[in-house]
Simulated scan of single mutants.
Amino acid sequence: MTATSDFIQTRSPVLFIIFNRPDTTAQVFNQIKKAKPKRLYIAGDGARNERPGETQLCEAARNVVNEIDWECDVKTRFQDVNLGCKDGVSTAISWFFEHEEEGIILEDDCLPADSFFSFCDNLLEKYRYDTRVRHITGCNLQQGKKWGDASYYFSNITHVWGWAGWRRVWKDYDKDLKRFDESSLRYEIGKIFQDSFILDSLEQIFKELKAGKIDTWDYQLGFLNYLNNGLCIIPNVNLISNLGFGTGSTHTVNTDSPYANLPVGSLTKIVHPRYFLPEKQADLFTLSHDFNIEERERRHNLLRRKVKRWVKEKLMTNE
């Protein structure tokens, strides 16, 4: 058991990734300000020329630097041109890990609980050299369900709404997944998930990533975790609230999503799991929601019954 405090100064360096939302940037920064990291990295993508007023919004978000009022080594990386979600975020993280062996990564719409920082501090240290663990996340999408009696559980899924990690993992990051091919993916991922609808969905995402049809950086990190048989640490209470759902978002546009603005909890002490195994049912719960598995199975079974009934009617007609 490890004691934590909500308001202790974080030991870990922090990367803060911002863009064009000065309002959410300010909210997240206020939490960083309470944690007072001794080393703070701020990265901002450039404005898109086709978006009127975005230059001013990016500049307003970058003014957060002026609010640093504690002793802190600050590094900034502000782009003059827009790199997009995939290159903008992944190059910022690479820049961070060029300077740091480990640390905390927050985007401008991921509002952390006070205890998120001490949670990351403790687990970054505990699993620093344990290559079974590749990722620590602050967000819990289990809608109140807890897995075991520890403060966190192990997962095969990599969540990136507020996370912490190590250079030892990021050095393998491959934004174009060049080392892997489609022919073996389903077989390899099938060693983790057996549901055909989940495999269909992951296979389709993989193909679209390889074809450059999805402008994102995070699915790649997830696939690298799957294909390296890695584990992600997920707290048993949610420590991150995503403020980014809405029309101004690139991907999280549905304000009715059950993941939008989730309330955060607190961890005042950390109890470690007894067993080093992923919670498969927790992962299935998340993926079933993300890929709409229940509805797809319902439609599939309905179609199968219709086909079976049609075949039976045809056989009876031909008798």
Results as ranks from 00 to 15, higher is better:
A3T: 11
Q9T: 15
T10I: 06
T10V: 08
T10F: 05
S12D: 04
S12C: 09
I18D: 00
I18T: 06
P22W: 06
T24M: 02
Q27N: 09
V28M: 06
V28Y: 01
F29T: 01
R39Q: 13
I42G: 00
G46C: 04
N49A: 12
T55W: 06
Q56V: 09
R62Y: 14
V65H: 04
E67A: 14
E71V: 12
V74H: 10
V81Q: 13
C85A: 11
D87M: 09
V89C: 04
H99E: 09
E101S: 15
E107T: 08
D108W: 03
F117T: 00
S118D: 11
L123I: 08
Y127C: 05
R134H: 13
R134M: 13
G138P: 04
C139N: 10
C139E: 09
L141Y: 10
Q143D: 15
K146G: 05
G148D: 03
A150D: 07
Y153S: 09
S155C: 07
I157L: 15
I157S: 00
W161A: 10
G165K: 01
W166E: 02
R167Q: 11
V169E: 04
Y173F: 11
K178Y: 09
R179W: 07
F180V: 07
E182H: 11
I192E: 02
F193D: 02
I198N: 02
L199F: 08
D200W: 10
I205Y: 07
F206E: 01
F206A: 04
K207R: 15
L209G: 00
K210R: 15
W217F: 15
D218E: 08
L221V: 10
F223T: 01
L224M: 14
N228E: 14
N229R: 14
L231R: 00
I234S: 07
I240T: 05
S241D: 05
L243Q: 05
L243Y: 02
S249C: 08
Y275P: 00
Y275S: 08
L277N: 11
P278I: 05
K280L: 13
K280Y: 10
A282K: 00
L284M: 09
E295H: 14
R298M: 04
R298F: 07
R299K: 15
N301T: 09
N301V: 05
K306P: 03
K308W: 08
R309N: 12
K312C: 10
L315C: 13
T317R: 14
T317L: 12
N318E: 09
N318I: 12
E319L: 13
